[in-house]
């Protein structure tokens, strides 16, 4: 009898198609985000995150249609991220059926945007994506900085202070990605995750670096994560969602089984 930790598969989409490939053997259309989202929901995913990497304006209209289609068929929470820059963008996504939006670059360029968004739509639907990279050197105390543009552009912002600021501005949840670990499959940056989780009152989703199920367990037990987000380990069929949930539950973590 307790709140369960969440597993959140993440779909990266471009012009309404899932990229970074999903390799389910028995899926009809591996690029169709609606079919993939439904599959994950049926398998017991606790939420779905839909990350839109479409650059063009026309492409974004496709994204709205995709979000509508997912929300019409998948009855678990849906977060939409990527290119959320204005209150109108948020309204469009919420009206399309998203439950939460994830704000990334726009929060860095204009922190007031987060405050306005939370006041207008409520903190419960405002996730701030925090992309952090370790900047301290060997022997120094750990220090992480916020990076934008896929980890290429430093901002000079201290990650822990930034996360606290975003929560004070109304963020209802933090999606924390270690840019050092993203794509490496060596596990979350647990020290980073623990530091941010301790610093804020709101839930923290750990992201970046998952390569096996023990990494998910470590994220919760040692990183203090309230939820774990992963893409490739699920997309490529290395592990299924039920397998991941059982593995975590067997190690004493409260899960929705």
């Amino acid at each position: 009898m307790a709140l369960a930790k969440r597993i959140i598969p993440c779909l990266d989409c471009d012009k309404g198609r899932v990229v970074k490939g999903v390799k389910f053997l028995d899926i009809r259309d591996a690029g169709d985000p609606v079919e993939i989202a439904r599959r994950y929901s049926d398998a017991g995913a606790d939420e779905i995150t839909f990350l839109d990497i479409t650059a063009s304006h026309e492409g974004r209209e496709t994204t709205v249609k995709t979000v509508e289609a997912i929300a019409s068929q998948v009855f678990i929470p849906l977060t939409v991220g990527g290119g959320i820059r204005t209150l109108e963008d948020i309204r469009t996504m919420l009206n399309a059926g998203a439950d939460k939006v994830s704000i990334n670059t726009a929060a860095v360029t204009n922190p007031e945007f987060v405050r306005q968004a939370a006041e207008k739509f409520g903190s419960q639907c405002i996730v701030v994506a925090v992309d952090a990279k370790k900047v301290s050197t060997e022997g120094e105390a750990d220090r992480w900085e916020i990076f934008t543009h896929g980890g290429r552009k430093p901002t000079g912002l201290d990650a822990i202070e930034w996360a606290k600021k975003m929560v004070s501005y109304g963020a209802g949840e933090i999606l924390l990605t270690s840019m050092d670990r993203d794509g490496t499959k060596i596990g979350f940056d647990l020290a980073l995750n623990r530091a941010i989780s301790n610093a804020v009152d709101v839930p923290v989703i750990a992201s970046g670096g998952v390569g096996n199920l023990q990494h998910l367990v470590d994220g919760v037990l040692h990183g203090g994560a309230d939820a774990v987000l992963a893409a490739s380990i699920f997309h490529f069929g290395e592990y299924s969602i039920p397998e991941a949930k059982q593995y975590m539950a067997d190690r004493g973590i409260t899960m929705r089984l």
């Binding site: 307790a2 709140l3 209802g172 839930p203 929705r256």
Partner: peptide, 16 residues
């Protein structure tokens, strides 16, 4: 919680 563990607010996720 009962064990003295700090709980996050909002209460977000799946509960009994």
């Amino acid at each position: 919680d009962a064990e003295g563990e700090r709980l996050k607010v909002p209460h977000m996720g799946w509960n009994n």
